[in-house]
């Protein structure tokens, strides 16, 4: 019913009405306008627990989210493989999510149940305030177009690679 028939799933997380937490949804809006081939884009909004509704099926999952990294300034773009040993552990659920099930939990559960695509890639931006009703920090806002471009490029490379014999 909701499961994706596309090989690539882009899942954006965040509260569009809560300052810098809107990063993911804003990137998703830009990506939707790009009409990328073979891609389904879902805005999970404040309900990351909806990710599993779209799995299994896709071979590549791209997660777009807000991030907190103490040693980086607000507005720093992070891009990494979810399974890379160098990936820092997810922030405690209460820090970034008040929605019971975090995106890290969803990915962990999908992995445990064998529903996760082999390739999971995270694109995130370090953020400052997540207060309701606040606008996005300018430094975060500036990273929306570059993040969308990076994702589009990643999708292009991945499709090219996956079509090679």
């Amino acid at each position: 019913m909701l499961s994706s028939a596309c090989p690539i799933l882009i899942a954006a997380c965040g509260n569009a009405m809560a300052g810098d937490d809107a990063f993911g949804p804003r990137v998703a809006e830009v990506l939707i306008r790009k009409r990328l081939p073979a891609v389904e884009i879902v805005n999970l909004g404040t309900k990351p627990g909806g990710l599993l509704d779209h799995l299994p099926g896709p071979q590549l999952l791209l997660v777009v989210d807000a991030a907190v990294q103490d040693d980086k300034p607000v507005g720093h773009l992070i891009e990494l493989d979810w399974f890379a040993p160098s990936r820092p552990p997810p922030a405690h659920e209460a820090v970034l999510s008040s929605h019971g099930v975090s995106i890290a939990d969803e990915i962990g559960l999908a992995d445990r149940l064998g529903m996760l695509p082999r390739h999971v890639h995270l694109v995130a931006c370090t953020i400052g305030s997540t207060h309701s009703g606040q606008p996005m920090h300018e430094a975060v806002q500036r990273q929306v177009p570059p993040a969308a471009r990076r994702i589009a490029a990643y999708v292009g490379h991945w499709l090219e690679k996956s079509h090679k014999p």
Partner: peptide, 24 residues
């Protein structure tokens, strides 16, 4: 739930299917 899924995978899978129907 992740730890629980290790031992009760079929239960969790059924639950996820039902949740998905609700969302649909």
């Amino acid at each position: 739930m992740i730890a629980m899924a290790e031992d009760h995978g079929p239960v969790v899978r059924k639950a996820l299917r039902i949740k998905k129907a609700g969302n649909a």
